[in-house]
């Protein structure tokens, strides 16, 4: 079994902490993993992505071939669209619906949403609102991860919660609790929207 994921967003939004949690969970479950990250100039508010590959067998390439990505997980709706050529025909997009507008020519958000809806399996989530309602205003990325847990398959919610606990442990119990609350709220939102 393998799962190829593209994490996307804007530099500084925190896609790498999502990757770190999934990585930690994968390590606990003894999965193979390769995770290509973007460091450097793009982190200054540019588009960023990370290719994350999980497998029960060997993984060769650090990069996902086009048309083979199972899940695009995006903290920003237009950024999800940037990686469409990588998405497999039955792949999922799970994305935040909150636009990050730091460029003058950001397209009308309705058009972005329409393009997203043209993909068969897509879920858009107001991650900021869900995070606020879970009393974790800085937990939008964990909300997104919680939603993704609904389709991830190779790792279940329990393993991901363990991953969150490990990754945030050194920041203290309160940070762990708030991130898990955000994660659970995201998972719940996914289940509600899926109905």
């Amino acid at each position: 079994m393998k799962k190829d994921i593209i994490l996307s967003g804007v530099g500084g939004q925190g896609i790498l902490s999502i990757a770190t949690v999934i990585g930690r969970a994968a390590l606990r479950e003894d999965l193979s993993l390769k995770q290509a990250e973007v460091h450097g100039m793009s982190q200054r508010g540019g588009d960023v992505q990370s290719h994350l590959r999980l497998s029960t067998g060997d993984i060769f390439s650090d990069l996902i071939p086009k048309g083979e990505c199972d899940l695009i997980l995006s903290l920003e709706p237009m950024e999800a669209l940037r990686y469409l050529p990588w998405l497999s025909k039955d792949g999922w997009i799970v994305t935040s619906s909150n636009p990050f507008v730091n460029i003058p020519d950001y397209p009308p958000i309705e058009e972005v949403m329409a393009d997203l809806q043209s993909v068969p399996n897509v879920m858009t989530i107001d991650c900021d609102a869900v995070a606020r309602s879970a009393a974790a205003p800085r937990g939008a990325n964990m909300v997104l991860l919680g939603a993704a847990a609904g389709v991830l398959g190779i790792l279940g919610p329990d393993e991901l919660r363990e991953g969150i606990s490990e990754v945030f442990a050194r920041k203290g119990e309160a940070v762990v609790t708030s991130n898990i609350a955000a994660f659970d709220a995201g998972l719940m939102e996914f289940k509600t929207l899926r109905k």
Partner: peptide, 10 residues
């Protein structure tokens, strides 16, 4: 790539 996708330079 969707037509609405525009570059986002750093």
């Amino acid at each position: 790539v969707a037509k609405t996708t525009v570059p986002r330079p750093p």
